[in-house]
Write a protein that binds this DNA or RNA. Structure first.
Lengths: 204, 204, 204, 204
DNA sequence: CATGAATGAGAATTCATTCAT
DNA sequence: CATGAATGAATTCTCATTCAT
C-alpha cells in the first residue's frame, strides 16, 4: 500500500500527478469542445502545466485521446470478458441479451466520451487504427463464445465462428453508435430483443 | 437565323462541359490524393478552369464529392431496388445472397472511390449526413422486403421489420468497408454465405 | 475587346504592385531585424496585404530574400561584366585595380543588405546555394579575363585560368565580407593595392 | 604520467570520464545529424548521463562544439607552426607548397567534422567568433613568415605583410571548404600548384 | 557531482472561399 | 459564364536550458 509510494521518489510521484492532471484536463476539454476543436493549449492551461510538459507525456492530441479511450474501453472489455457457458439455447439468449444490454448501457453512460471518440475515429488515422484493434479484441472474444456453443452442440457447427462473430459485433457496434448519437429512434429494449433474437435464432 | 438559340445552346453546352470537366478532374484528384489532401486548386488546374468557376457549380469541396458519391451510389440503389418476391425460404435465401454479392462486388469495383468516401464521411459533417441518408434509403428498402416476407408468412412476424433491416444492413455495410479497405482477411464468398445464412435462418 | 484586355492588365498591374510592396516591405524588415529575426508577419503588415498574399508570390522567407539578393547582385554583375582588354601589364593592373575598387565600394554602399545576405547564407540552405551560383558567375567571368591575358601573351600561360580566377575571387570575396562587417582594420586602398599587386605580379 | 590520474580522487576521475563521454557522444551525434539537427538529448542519451550533467561541463551546445573544434584545429596549428626559413625563392615555394598540401589534406581527413564546423559557423555567433579567432591565429603566423622573407631579401618589401597573409589565407581557406564539401571539381594537386605559384611569383 | 521534470516562446503556413471585374 | 488575386484564422510542436532535489 504505502510501500508502492515509498518506492517512488518525490520526483516520480510528481511526474505521475502531472500526467494525471493532463489526462483529466484533456478529458474535460475534449468533452466540452469535441475532438477537433479541442486544443492542447486549453488542456495545459487547465492542467496548470507548461506548454512543453504536455509533449513530455503525450506525442500529440491523438495520443492523449487514445489513452483516454483505452481507459473508457476497459469497462467494455469487462463486459466482453464475462463468462459465457450456456447450457441451452434459452440460456444463451438470456446471457447474450444481457451482454448486449450492458454493452449499450455502458455506451450510453459514457455517451459524451463515446461521441468524442467517434469524431476522432473519423478524423485521426491513429485513433482509427486503435479503434480497429479494440474492435478486433471484441470480435476475438465473441468468436470464442461461438466456438464454445458449437462444441457444446448448441450452435450450428457449419458457421464460421469468426465471420459470425464479426457480423454480430458489427451490428451491435453500429446500434451502439446510434444510441450514443442520441436521436433515439428506437427503444434500447426493442433493439436488444430484435437483435438478439435474430442472432440466436439464426445461430442456434 | 436561330443565332440566339444556338448561342444559348452553345453556352449551355459549354456550361455542362465545364461542370463535367470539373467533376472528372475532381474525381481524379480525389482518387489520387484522398479527400483531405485533395485541393480545389489541383482540380481547377486539371479541369483548365479558373478558381471561381468551381464555385459556380459546386458549393464547396464537400459538395463536389457528394455529387460524385451519389453517382457511385446510383449503381448500389439499383441493386437494392431489385424486385424481391420469394415464394419460399429457399428462394429468399437465394435472392438475398445474390443481392449481398452484387452489393459487395460493386463496392470492390468502386474500391478506390469508396475509400475516398469513407475518409470524407469521417471528416465532413455534410458528407456524413448524406451518407446517413443513403443508408436510410437502403434500410427502408430492406424493411419493405422484410414486411413482404412476413406478410407472405415466410418470415417470423414477431420481428420489428425496421430494426431487423437496420441490423442486417449494418452488418453488410461494415463488411463492405472491410472489402473496400483491401486487407481481405476473408473470402467474399465465405462472408456472403455465413452472413446470409445467419440472417435467413434467424428471420425465416 | 480592348476593355477586357484593359481589365486583365489592371489586374496584372495590381498583382505586380502587390509583389513590389511585399518586396519593399521585406527589404525594410530584413534591414531592421536581420534575416533570422525578420518575420513574414512584419512584412505583410508593412505591405498592407493579407497573410496568404505573401505566399502567393514567395515560397517563403528565404525565397523573398533571394529575389532581393539577386536585385542587389545585379549591380555587382555589371562591374564584373566590364570590358577587360588590357594591352600591357600596367593596363591590366590599372583595370583590375579599378574593378576591385568598384566591387568593394559597391559592397560598402549596400553594406546593410550585404550583412543580411551574409547572415542568410549561413542559415539558409537555399540562400547559400544561390550565393554559390552567384559566385560561380563571377569566377566564370574572371576566367575569361585570365584566358584573354594569356592569349595576348601578357599572363603566364602555365596557370590554370579557372583555378587562378577562383583563388583570386575567393580573396576578394573574403575581403569584401570584411569591409561589409565594418570593423575596418585596414584602409580599403591598402587592401586594393596589396591584393592587386600580388595578383598581377604573380600572374603577369 | 599515470601519476596524474593517481593524484586525482575517484570523483575527479569520474568527472573527467563523464566529460569525455559527453564529448565523444557529442561528436558522434554532430557527425550523424549535423550541427542544427543534433540535440543535447541525443548526446546525453548516448553518453548515459542526465540532462543537467551536460550543462555542468559545457555552457551549451555551441560550447561543446567549440571544444571539439579546437581539438580538430590543434592539428592544423601544428602545420601552421612549422618552421619556415627558406634560403631561396625555390625553397620558399617548396615549403609553402608542402604546407598548403598538409593543410588541405588535414581538412579532407577531418572532412565530416569540418562540415559540421562550417554549418555551425553560419548558424552560431559564438562558433563564428571562435572561428575568426582561429583564422587570425593562422594569418598572424603567415605574417611572420612573410616578414621573415622580406627581411631576408627574398620577398618584395613593399607588400604589407598582414594584408598579403590575409589574402593568402582567405584563398586557402575557401579552397579548403571546397575540398571539404566533397564535390571535388579540381584535383588537390592542381589547386596547390596554381595557388602556390601565383602567390610565390607575386610575392617573391 | 548528477539528475531529469518542467518550461515556453512564437513563426510558419495552408487552402477554401470570395467578389470585383 | 468565367476568372484569379486576395484573404486570414489559428494551432502546432521543438528543444535548449534551468533548478530543485
Amino acid at each position: 500500500m504505502a510501500n508502492e509510494n515509498e518506492n517512488l521518489t518525490v520526483r516520480e510521484r510528481q511526474a505521475i500527478q502531472t500526467r494525471k492532471n493532463l489526462l483529466d484536463a484533456g478529458k474535460a476539454i475534449f468533452l466540452e469542445n469535441g475532438f477537433q476543436k479541442a486544443t492542447i493549449s486549453q488542456m495545459i492551461k487547465r492542467a496548470h502545466t507548461g506548454y512543453g510538459t504536455a509533449y513530455v507525456y503525450f506525442k500529440n492530441k491523438d495520443d492523449l485521446l487514445i489513452v483516454l479511450m483505452e481507459e473508457v474501453m476497459e469497462k467494455f472489455y469487462q463486459v466482453a470478458e464475462q463468462s459465457f457457458e450456456p447450457k441451452s439455447k434459452g440460456e444463451a439468449q438470456e446471457q447474450i441479451s444481457e451482454q448486449v444490454r450492458l454493452f449499450l448501457m455502458l455506451a450510453v453512460e459514457e455517451k459524451a466520451m463515446m461521441n468524442v471518440i467517434k469524431e476522432a475515429i473519423g478524423v485521426s488515422q491513429e485513433v482509427e487504427q486503435r479503434w480497429n484493434l479494440i474492435r478486433e479484441r471484441f470480435i476475438e472474444r465473441i468468436s470464442v463464445d461461438v466456438r464454445y456453443s458449437q462444441k457444446k452442440g448448441l450452435a450450428n457447427p457449419t458457421f464460421n465462428p469468426v465471420l459470425v462473430a464479426r457480423g454480430w459485433f458489427y451490428a451491435n457496434e453500429m446500434f451502439m453508435w446510434d444510441c450514443v448519437k442520441g436521436d433515439n429512434l428506437f427503444s434500447i429494449d426493442d433493439v436488444i430483443m430484435n437483435l438478439t433474437q435474430l442472432y440466436v435464432d439464426g445461430l442456434y
